[in-house]
Amino acid sequence: MQNGSVPGYSKPLYRDDAVVLRVQKLGESDRIITLLTRRHGRIRAVARGVRRTTSRFGGRLEPFGHVDLQLAEGTGLHTVRQVEGIELYAKRFLDDYPRYTTASAIAETAERLTPVESEPTLRLFLLTLGALRALAEGAHANTLILDAYLLRGMGLAGWAPALAECAVCGTAGRHGAFSVPAGGSVCPDCRPPGAAHPAPATIDLMSALATGNWRIADGTENATRRECSGLVAAHLQWHLERGLRSLPLVDRG
């Protein structure tokens, strides 16, 4: 909600809810908070004094939290005025190292999928929030939640791998080869040299994760999940200009 200028504040104030993606130290006791907001896309905001132990809202601005904020608009950086926690997921991840590393990969992906600041991305916001909630509740295996998030995030960015048709000629059906540079499954006629030959169950798992068919996904073997994670990570890193720093550090148990 845009409040416009408020007496006593030189900058217009507005309110939005957001997921905290990243925090970086600034000066003596401040932080720059990277937020994925519901209505304003990805923004960066300064939170003053939050590193002091007496800070009124420092604890609410830790990564992975879903928070309700009042912000002051800025030309580059916004300023956090007030914060209320809606659901602080970090407290569920801190005593579980694999979950923490998975949440970090989700947060970094969300940041990388929004290269332009202040461009609303409601679907990515809801996807990110859903992934963190599922991770916090332990609804499914961490690795499945992460791969489902990456596949759907790539779908929102327009890079979803072709799984039900050939990525080159569009021939419908499940194909045996998978080529990251070609864009997904490829038929025998279009298969480029060096294409991978994943197990059919792996392509089924990728399809299940992309469409939210958790009954199939939850019933898969560890070897299938590992192969799926490898293909998803390779597909994502191919489309991003540089790799995700957090992905190699994800503890997959």
Partner: peptide
């Protein structure tokens, strides 16, 4: 923290 008000404490703390 010593010297703080309870109402301002965040949920985790």
């Amino acid at each position: 923290p010593v010297g703080g008000d309870l109402e301002y404490a965040d949920e985790i703390t």
